[in-house]
Design a protein around this nucleic acid. Structure first.
Lengths: 238, 238
DNA sequence: AGTTGTTGACTTGTATGGAAGTAGGCATGT
DNA sequence: ACATGCCTACTTCCATACAAGTCAACAACT
């Protein structure tokens, strides 16, 4: 799973290599919208802040640039990229395709241990306090990752992390927008259909679940227009 | 598309930044099996070879490590990673899921211009001389990319590059193994079904097309056992 | 007033030296 | 013969210095 670290009051571990640590922290800060789109980042400034030299900071920048989270403009500066609207839609497309196949596989085999595990997770999801969507997002991640692992494609989840991060940024910006109880109901349906080995119904349930983000996107775009680039009409996606 | 550059006799462009150029060249050399698994790479050696300092080489290493093509062992050395068998299978799974949905979308709408374009490409594929599989792989890339673009998810192809590179390494190792004419026939069927707007048959055709690599994998593993890690039985995938 | 040119403080890109850790050869001691 | 410890030559990682490009403020000129 994407290790979203708690960056607040975070400190470097002297024993481990510096550069990968910075990478994780900065990525977490960007995805969780602590570093907002178009924010200017400076190599020497961050180096000073974390008490290291420019080089490890720079190496973290390069990685994050490759992941589409930073934009490095030579001799000008480094900036947090705005959210690429098209990338979000494409990421969603990939996720739907992959997870639909995952669910199909699971509903075909029918794994009672898995269903038991998922039902336990559903209870945890229902117990999430009203005002802490962060906790729900964490449990949601775990739910979908469990499905991937059960289908024998655990590494798929790792591979999709870069793609998923685009969607996650949207989720963290629009915390309040998410209809948690609705999402839990959808999770529950998916589990039900897996248990009943109703293959195509399970697949459909997953697909419409992953289309949920499309409902919030127009509103997000309206609220924070300058957070996005490549904006376009998404009616064709629905 | 993945810019596989012609690394033979390649030279640096003095105007552009060095590090991204090195990244492309080294990636091409690894995927095309010019740099073989477990080959040791040395920062100072490559720096000397290309007439630059160690730093840009190092930055290229970091990117390639993130893509799963290199393994950097601190204070020990940097090595070309063996091909992760599980990663190949998972990459194939993702590709099948995504391209199945792409084809479904295309067969639903029915785009005559697209079909025309694809038929032209099929002719090019048929004209590939017997002994040059490299040329066919290039055309194959183009074929699948055309489908993605037509479905309005062009960026998906970019996003899957890292995943796809795992499969591509296998393809370049097993050049001769690929039954080109068989693959072209499969391409043709896909185009036919898109034209006829036979949705589920088009989807099935794409799925079995992308399962083709599973047939060659056991043989590849047998021929080059030390090129792979995480080897496992793939019978469950078929 | 408006335009142009220069200067200087920024930025990222590259080069280079040293710190810390690893691995293997080799002499020494048992 | 064999185990132990040192020494040397490597590796990656980090720090620092310099090179080259950008941008804005400002002086000088038309």
């Amino acid at each position: 799973m994407l290790a979203l670290v708690d960056f607040d009051g975070w400190k470097l571990d002297q024993l481990k290599a510096v550069s990968p640590q910075l990478r994780l922290v900065l990525r977490s800060r960007i995805i969780q919208n602590d570093l907002r789109p178009m924010t200017r980042l400076s190599e020497p400034e961050l180096a000073k802040e974390y008490g290291v030299s420019r080089q490890p900071v720079r190496e973290a920048f390069i990685t994050l640039m490759n992941e589409g989270l930073l934009e490095v403009r030579p001799q000008r500066g480094t900036f947090v990229r705005r959210i690429d609207f098209e990338a979000v839609l494409n990421a969603r497309f990939v996720r739907e395709a992959v997870e639909a196949d995952i669910v199909r596989k699971l509903a075909t085999t029918g794994d009672s241990d898995l269903v038991k595990d998922l039902r336990t997770q559903l209870e945890l999801q229902k117990n999430v306090p009203e005002g802490s969507p962060e906790r729900f997002i964490e449990l949601d991640e775990r739910f979908h990752m469990t499905l991937a692992r059960a289908a024998g494609v655990a590494k798929v989840w790792d591979n999709l992390e870069v793609i998923k991060s685009q969607m996650d940024r949207v989720r963290f910006i629009t915390f309040e927008e998410f209809p948690i109880s609705k999402l839990i109901d959808q999770h529950e349906k998916i589990v039900d259909f897996i248990e009943q080995m109703a293959v195509s119904r399970a697949e459909d349930a997953m697909r419409s679940h992953l289309r949920e983000i499309l409902n919030s996107l127009p509103r997000v775009q309206e609220l924070y227009p300058d957070y996005f680039e490549n904006s376009r009409d998404i009616s064709s996606e629905i």
